[in-house]
């Protein structure tokens, strides 16, 4: 190539124009503002005292921040028919039971599909992959019929069991195992006489920790954010998210408390993501679909 290559410290410098950098930064800032404004708004609202909430024109900042809205939220919570601790228990219990079962079953199946060559594994995985292509709402009503036949409607099981079989988790786990667990390690463990189950548990699972974490987070987020469900009618079995929605549905009197509720609910999944971001990104590295 005759053209001059710009070099810095003897390394090839990639073609990057100043204008391009500026344009990209500009677009990124605009989009970032668009993404951030609603988040900023809800945080600001949750910290505003009553007189600032209903000020015209509305202010884009707080002058006297207060935690009164959060206190009001807890007062409103304790005024409920069902004790609020019950809703918290419901959500925590279903989230944990659903997530633990999902992690265990999906990893077990993912290991077999990725690392044991048995007839039918490709077909099974194809089926799971296809199910990523349609949304859960398509099957909600027939699920309801099946669950009534199994008599698990209006029990915790109606939330927990389907979570065990959720598809994204298995998909990510299988792809990750395929790319980061080498056959040689497994083979040497098998030659030592270890059973498949033992090989799975002592060799493969410790190697895929980032995928565990990703699975846990996806499953937990789904269950944590679950609101009203058509599978649950009893008030004492409903989720925390549902209860909070009831509070926020109380109209303009509760604008402050409702903003506080949103902040409380969103803090949990966001902090979980912040802690585990690098692991999730690592897992996503193998998320690609090959055909």
């Amino acid at each position: 190539m005759a053209q001059k290559l710009r070099t810095r410290k003897h390394k090839v410098v990639l073609a990057r124009s100043r204008g391009g950098d500026a344009g990209i930064t500009f677009i990124l800032v605009i989009l970032g503002i668009f993404m951030f404004i609603p988040m900023y708004y809800v945080i600001i609202q949750s910290l505003k005292p009553l007189d600032e909430l209903w000020m015209f024109p509305p202010r884009f900042y707080v002058s006297k921040p207060t935690f009164k809205n959060f206190k009001d939220l807890f007062t409103l919570m304790s005024g409920n028919l069902v004790p609020f601790s019950r809703y918290i228990f419901n959500t925590v219990f279903t989230s944990v039971a659903g997530t633990v079962g999902h992690l265990f079953f999906a990893s077990l199946a993912a290991y077999a599909m990725a690392k044991i060559k048995f007839p039918g594994r490709k077909g099974m995985f194809k089926l799971v992959q296809t199910s990523l292509m349609f949304h859960k709402t398509v099957t909600a009503i027939t699920c309801f019929i099946l669950m009534s036949a199994m008599q698990i409607i209006d029990t915790y099981w109606a939330i927990i069991i389907p979570a065990w079989g959720s598809t994204l988790g298995l998909y990510l786990m299988k792809q990750f195992m395929e790319s980061s667990v080498t056959d040689a390690v497994l083979e040497s463990s098998r030659l030592d006489g270890a059973s498949e189950l033992r090989t799975f548990w002592t060799i493969a699972m410790p190697m895929v920790k980032p995928a565990w974490l990703t699975l846990i987070i996806y499953s937990f987020q789904d269950l944590w954010n679950a609101g009203a469900s058509i599978y649950i009618h009893s008030e004492q079995l409903k989720s925390l998210n549902y209860a909070i929605q009831q509070i926020t549905a109380g109209g303009i009197k509760r604008a402050g408390a409702s903003a506080a509720a949103t902040v409380v609910m969103m803090l949990v999944p966001i902090s979980v993501f912040v802690i585990s971001q690098s692991n999730i990104i690592e897992t996503m590295g193998s998320s690609g679909m090959k055909d």
């Binding site: 989009l31 970032g32 993404m35 951030f36 609603p38 988040m39 809800v42 987020q221 944590w224 954010n225 609101g227 998210n241 909070i244 929605q245 926020t248 949103t262 609910m265 969103m266 999944p269 966001i270 993501f273 912040v274 971001q277 990104i281």
Partner: peptide, 13 residues
Amino acid sequence: TLIFYAPSIAGQV
């Protein structure tokens, strides 16, 4: 990443 990803996981926000 967090700024762009947060809205999709923040529940009812």
